[in-house]
Simulated assay, not measured.
Amino acid sequence: MGEIKILLAEDHLVVRNGIKLLLNSQTNFNVVADVSNGMDALQTLSSDVEVDVVITDLGMNNLDGLQLIQEVTAKHPHIKVIVLTMLDCEQHMFKAFEYGAKGYLVKNVGSDELIFCINHVAQGGKYLCEELAMGFINSGIEKNRSKDLEFDPVALDLTSRELEVLELLGEGLTNLEISKKLFLSKRTVEGHRQNLIDKTKSKNTPALIKYAVLNGLIQ
């Protein structure tokens, strides 16, 4: 793709100059403006300066990064916004994407990842830095492990017939309908249903179905 014109909003001068130097070292990047706050960024965008991507910090005076994202999204929807911040909390990340950001990076990100993110976003993609993405994955793994510890389907000792009855209960069939479908007496089906309630420690049939769905016993 052609040259990517970048506006950099960062309130720390040394950090801003360092990022600008890095970006301008890339043949397809051009930092056309760098400012210290969101208000100056909006004024720049309202001038004749052509911008493809805005890279912004979040904690700035005179209009912070989240407000800037909202303003850019509303007034300049063709411009992509990437957050580059020290704030690695989920709340700020969710808000940034909700307001229209296309990328979110923490400031300890490597130069290669920063460059990749800009190119990817400029071409229409979205990007979450590896550190935060892996944090979500590891959190999900831990939640799954906890869930596995809480529920052991083998420990329920359900018979194949009980699982058949459970599946049909989940489909909304009555005891009589199940008995006809499985060629069992209605009393036998009622016995299987009660065994399922007892084994899962459910209060009633609706609670049994809810338990089965939550624990993956039925779809």
Rank of each mutant, 00 (worst) to 15 (best):
G103L: 02
V121C: 10
H92M: 09
H120S: 01
K80M: 12
V83K: 01
D52V: 12
G65T: 05
E113R: 07
V83Q: 04
T56W: 09
Q67W: 04
L63Q: 09
L68R: 00
E90F: 07
Y99H: 08
I115W: 08
F116H: 15
H92I: 09
C117V: 00
F116A: 01
P77N: 08
V72S: 03
V121H: 02
M60W: 09
K75W: 01
V54P: 00
I115K: 12
M93E: 01
V81E: 03
N119I: 05
D64L: 04
L68G: 02
C117A: 10
T85M: 13
I115H: 13
H76G: 03
G103K: 04
K102D: 01
T56A: 05
V121S: 05
G65H: 02
V54Y: 02
N119A: 01
L66R: 03
L63K: 09
K102H: 12
K95H: 07
T73N: 11
V72M: 06
V53D: 10
V83N: 02
K80R: 15
V53Q: 06
L84T: 04
C117M: 00
Q70G: 07
D64T: 13
D112S: 11
V83D: 06
Q70H: 12
A122W: 02
I82A: 07
Q91P: 07
L87N: 14
N61C: 13
D52W: 08
A74P: 00
E98L: 08
D64F: 04
I115Y: 07
H92S: 15
D57E: 15
I118W: 00
L84W: 03
A101H: 11
S111C: 09
E98M: 04
D64H: 00
K95C: 10
C89P: 01
P77W: 03
G100L: 06
V54R: 01
N119S: 09
C117L: 01
G65Y: 03
E113G: 02
D88K: 12
H78Q: 14
K80E: 14
M86D: 10
N108P: 03
T85L: 08
L68I: 07
I118H: 01
Q67T: 08
F97E: 05
L68W: 02
E98R: 12
G110A: 12
T85S: 15
V109L: 01
I118F: 00
G59Y: 15
H120Q: 11
H92P: 06
L63Y: 14
V106T: 11
D57Y: 08
